[in-house]
């Protein structure tokens, strides 16, 4: 049976070596570019006419805009709308990465923890910097729970700091685990289809169901990543 992990192997398409560093253009990079291109193309084509009564494509773009705008207003407050472009970009990039990864023969770059971690740590560093930029040194008070007894503070502050610092890890692990597990499961069941011969219809039915499930997961994980980014943004702006 085919190795379910084989699909995650990175293949360099254009080998680039700079001073001993492997900066090759891989199929992962290619699919990132395709995702960016597809998201850009969708938004550009959708807003080309800017019709009063939107056509299909424009409706999709407006729906995406309204969805993310609502998400930010609900979770980060009105002040969060200043960061709409960044959050919209993040959501579209992850969503297209997840969705395009479901196309047969495509590569899912969100199934690599280094990709999701790079996104999560960028969000984390920028939001922490934003917190300090808005509140100055007062942002450090974020780590002291309000109303806690003085005797408990030496214990609570380290817990708060650790719980704050593991945010990028949990954010990236959640996305990567969901994408990798889903694709592995699909591959395992798809492998059974040929291995079982005539009885292959049973795993085929499971594969079809799983693929539908994966579409939901692909959207849900992009949504969760975005919602949590908005919640962290809320913490940085309002400090609870």
């Amino acid at each position: 049976m085919a190795d379910p992990l084989h699909q995650f192997v990175i293949n360099p398409l254009v080998p680039i070596n700079v001073a001993g560093l492997d900066l090759s253009f891989t199929q992962s990079s290619l699919w990132m570019m395709i995702s960016v291109g597809a998201a850009y193309g969708l938004v550009m084509l959708g807003t080309r006419h800017a019709a009063l009564i939107p056509g299909r494509l424009q409706s999709v773009v407006e729906l995406a805009y309204e969805f993310i705008a609502g998400l930010i207003k609900d979770n980060a407050g009105r002040e969060g709308m200043r960061y709409f472009p960044a959050i919209f970009t993040l959501f579209m990039f992850i969503l297209f990465g997840n969705m395009l990864g479901l196309v047969p023969m495509a590569f899912t770059f969100t199934s690599h923890i280094i990709v999701t971690f790079a996104m999560a740590i960028t969000v984390f560093v920028l939001i922490t910097a934003l917190g300090f930029a808005i509140h100055g040194a007062h942002f450090a008070h974020f780590f002291v729970p309000a109303g806690a007894p003085k005797a408990m503070i030496p214990l609570l502050v380290p817990i708060e700091i650790i719980s704050y610092c593991v945010r990028p890890i949990s954010l990236s692990v959640r996305l990567f685990v969901n994408m990798m597990a889903g694709h592995m499961m699909l591959k395992v069941f798809a492998g059974f289809v040929t291995a079982l011969g005539v009885f292959g219809f049973a795993p085929l039915a499971v594969t079809v169901a799983l693929l539908g499930f994966e579409v939901v997961v692909a959207f849900l994980q992009a949504y969760i990543f975005t919602v949590l980014t908005c919640i962290y943004l809320h913490d940085a702006i309002h400090m609870h």
């Binding site: 719980s163 610092c165 593991v166 949990s170 849900l220 969760i224």
Partner: peptide, 23 residues
Amino acid sequence: LNFGTGLTVGIELVVGVVAGVGL
């Protein structure tokens, strides 16, 4: 509530422990 809830909470718990021990 959705089926992501259980997984989300589980990952939070695991990541906390693993990150603590790793550090």
